[in-house]
Amino acid sequence: MLLWNTWKALKANGVMGINRRNADYVLKYNKRHLYPVVDDKILTKERAIAAGINVPELYGIIETEKDIDRFQKIVAPYRDFVVKPAQGAGGDGILVIADRFEGRYRTVSGKIISYEEIEHQISSILSGLYSLGGHRDRVLIEYRVTPDPIFKSISYEGVPDIRIIVLMGYPVMAMLRLPTRQSGGKANLHQGAIGVGVDLTTGVTLKGTWLNSKITKHPDTTNPVDGVQLPDWDGFMRLATSCYELSGLGYIGVDLVLDEEKGPLILELNARPGLNIQIANDAGLTHRCHKVEHHIAALKKEGRLETVEERMAFSQRHFGQPVPAATTPSEPSEPA
């Protein structure tokens, strides 16, 4: 009985479950043949560059064991850089070099590693250790993002990122992900990072979620996580919105970072974005998604498509906090 009440309450709040996400959104809007665009970070980056969307600069690609020799040459002009598997998942296999130290390299956490260790890491990535399904992979070496100082007080090491869920080109929900001591500097909720909801209209942070429960303060810095104004919020929104054209996928999670110098950058896209964003925002995705779907159906009747700016404006108009519940019917019929 208790479970049934929970069920009803969740349904009333429009909380989306995995089954619904998969059946109604991922399977419906994401064409399988487009997955490589988001699964392979090199492809994503190439598409983004072609579309004029800001991404961390690509220094070089290593495709074979033989190519590893080129590594030194690729990174020669830079003091800091990031080594990444092109098809990695969950931030694994990423090596962030912050500086050089007497012919060796220093990672962000201060560890000194030798060239041989980097070489082994690259070799592991190539052999498919970190790729989805263990396929052979490519390595990309790119610009290291320096997080904007605004996050200093509410973040522990690492780079906080912003996840925006975009349905058919309409941002529906956003979350700021803050690394903690527990997550080891990674912005991954599964590993213990904090998710903080973001008001789509203003870019002001809301309360957060940590390990599936609601929180208001960062556990390491004890500073409140809510009420922080993210700079250049419209820039974030614009980038995320245009990712629909970039990828062709209808339901994606866009991961962005705020670089000290270059502003908002797209890190990667995710074709199966997680659902914890709902806890961070204390709101369900289903109602918002239905609103977008109705809007699209209405537009279709009129026979027109909206531009990036129009779509952004629609989301910012409707998905600020609090979402007016009265305008969203509890279970609207599916648009055809």
């Binding site: 479970l3 009440n5 929970t6 069920w7 309450a9 969740l10 349904k11 709040n13 909380v15 479950g17 995995i18 089954n19 979620t209 599936n212 429960s213 609601k214 659902l275 709902q278 806890i279 204390d282 709101a283 369900g284």
Partner: peptide, 13 residues
């Protein structure tokens, strides 16, 4: 919903 999701999203009720 899945049964475990009822626990996971309990905070949202």
């Amino acid at each position: 919903y899945r049964l475990t999701e009822l626990m996971r999203f309990k905070a949202l009720t």
